[in-house]
Every structure is written in C-alpha cells, then in structure tokens.
C-alpha cells in the first residue's frame, strides 16, 4: 500500500515543470489563439523529446496524468489529449507529429485540425473537414469533421483521464495565482486576502482540489472509473475558476490578464470529452 508518487515519477514531473516554467507557454497560447502556431509547435517538439507523446503507449496512466496536469497548469495549447492520449491507444502506436480526432457525439469537433498532420474520426481518417468553429477558449480551434470511425473505449477513458488531469493542473494554477494576488491587492487599507470571505472561498478551492487529486490518480490505477476523475476534477477546477475570477475583481475579467487563459480553458474542458452529466451517468451505471 503506497499511494504516493515514486521517485521516478516525481523526477519526471519536476523535469516537465522546469521545462514549462522556462518556456513561456502563455506566450505560445496567446500566439496559438491568433493562429501563429510557431511557438506552440516548438514547445510541442520539446515536450515530445521529453517523452510526453509516448507515455500512452510506453508508460502508465499515472505518468499520463502527471504530464497532463503540467500541460493544464501551464495552459499549453494544442491537441494534446488527442495526440498523446486517445490516438496512441486507439491506433496502438505512438502518433508521429500532431494528430487530432473527433468522436461525435461526446467529442463533436476535431481540435486544431488546421495544424494537425492527420485528422481522424474514431480510428479512421476523417473523410472531410469543415469550417472552423470558435471556442470559449481562444486557443481551441474546433473543426466539424465527417467520417465513420468507431469509439475505442480504452482510448476514450485515457483521454477522459488526461482531460481530468489537465483540469486539475488548471485549477491548481488558478488557485496559486489567486492566492498570490489577494496578498498583493489592498482595499479598505488591508490585503483583501485578510478578509474571511476571501480566505474561506480560497480554502474551499484548496479542499476541492485536494479531494479531486486522489480520484484522478485513483482512476489512473484503476481503482475508480475515469469518469469519476473527470467529474471531480471538473467540479474542483470550475470552482477554482469561479472563485479565482471573483477574488480578482475586474482585472480578472479582462482578456489581457493571463488568468483569462485558464478561466476559459477550464470552461471548455469541463464539457470536453464528455459532459459532467454524461460522466455522472456513466459512474452510476457502473454502480447499479
């Protein structure tokens, strides 16, 4: 019995963290939103070098979770869930380059099909790619596609888990940035972080994230379904985003302030790869 990362896993997470902290992923995300994919693809290549694209085939779901939590924490743009979680399992091999996939009805659009080398519907190449649709998350460029590939269940679960881990990372980031902000911002002559309304709201976020994490890692170990991780991480990250925005006030409501990147990403990911209602239904079906 040992429910804790081992040294190799910690080292891997630390390596990812130091790469991403130094790489300006926010700059890459902003450029990506404006259709400048250069910085994002450069980051993609560096993460692929570190092994992120081969985790689904060569490592365990725990490593996949660690990687996606880091991607979420740093708001790394691109079809990562598609290329590094779903497709490798569905196709039975690591994806070479950037690929994307749609699985209607739960994944109705192919994310970033414009930059992808290959676009799939299920496990088959898409027969056509339609006109781009905008997402609440400006870094997510969505494309309707046609094709008749089937859903690969195991691949879908890994994608769901990866999305949950990304939500966890995004939630942690919003909390950390909010805690920093409320210690700097003063109103009525004192830090807003000294007001109990603010302290309690942020404490609730801490608690929600602390209890979402074991479901994410527990799902990675097969103790609970991936849907459990997605519901719980989605709820916790969403609470983080609502609270994070509220404690920032108007500055948090601007596109220019970086918080917006995570607020919009969380909103998008909450319903990506299966809505909370869908996943709750799946959890219940497994229990009855």
């Amino acid at each position: 019995m040992r429910f804790e990362l081992d040294d190799d896993q910690r080292d891997f997470a630390a390596a990812l963290e130091s790469l991403l902290s130094a790489a300006d992923p926010v700059g890459a995300a902003r450029a990506w939103a404006e259709d400048d994919h250069g910085p994002g693809l450069k980051l993609w290549a560096r993460l692929a070098d570190l092994g992120v694209t081969s985790l689904a085939t060569d490592a365990t779901p725990v490593e996949v979770c660690l990687a996606f939590e880091a991607l979420g924490r740093h708001a790394v743009p691109g079809p990562w869930v598609e290329s590094a979680a779903y497709l490798p399992v569905a196709l039975g091999r690591e994806v070479d380059g950037v690929a994307t996939v749609a699985l209607p009805p739960h994944v109705p659009y192919a994310l970033d099909a414009d930059v992808a080398d290959r676009v799939y519907v299920g496990s088959s190449p898409a027969t056509s790619v339609g006109e781009r649709v905008g997402s609440v998350d400006r870094t997510r460029h969505l494309f309707p596609v046609s094709g008749d590939g089937e859903v690969h269940e195991e691949a879908f679960d890994l994608a769901v888990l990866a999305t949950a881990a990304q939500l966890l990372g995004a939630g942690e980031r919003i909390l950390a940035d909010s805690v920093t902000y409320v210690q700097q911002r003063k109103q009525f002559g004192r830090e807003i972080g000294s007001y109990q309304a603010i302290k309690h709201a942020l404490a609730d976020v801490r608690i929600a994230l602390d209890f979402a994490r074991p479901l994410v890692l527990g799902a990675a170990l097969g103790e609970v379904p991936a849907s459990a991780a997605k519901v719980s991480a989605g709820d916790a990250a969403y609470l983080a985003s609502r609270t994070g925005l509220q404690v920032h006030g108007a500055i948090g409501y601007t596109q220019e302030f970086d918080l917006s990147i995570w607020l919009t990403k969380v909103r998008a990911l909450v319903t990506a790869w299966g809505t909370p209602a869908y996943h709750r239904g799946r959890v219940l079906a497994g229990l009855l």
Binding site: E4, D210, F211, P214, L215, L217, G218, V224
Partner: peptide, 19 residues
C-alpha cells in the same frame, strides 16, 4: 453519484495520508 464519488475520494485521500 456525488456522494459515492465523495466517499471514494475520501477513501483514496486517506490512503495518501496513511502513506
């Protein structure tokens, strides 16, 4: 569902604490 998830989260969280 949320009650069941909460109980599982608590169970797994506790294993983390025990570790």
């Amino acid at each position: 569902v949320d009650a069941w998830l909460g109980a599982q989260a608590y169970r797994l969280y506790t294993w983390g604490t025990v570790t």
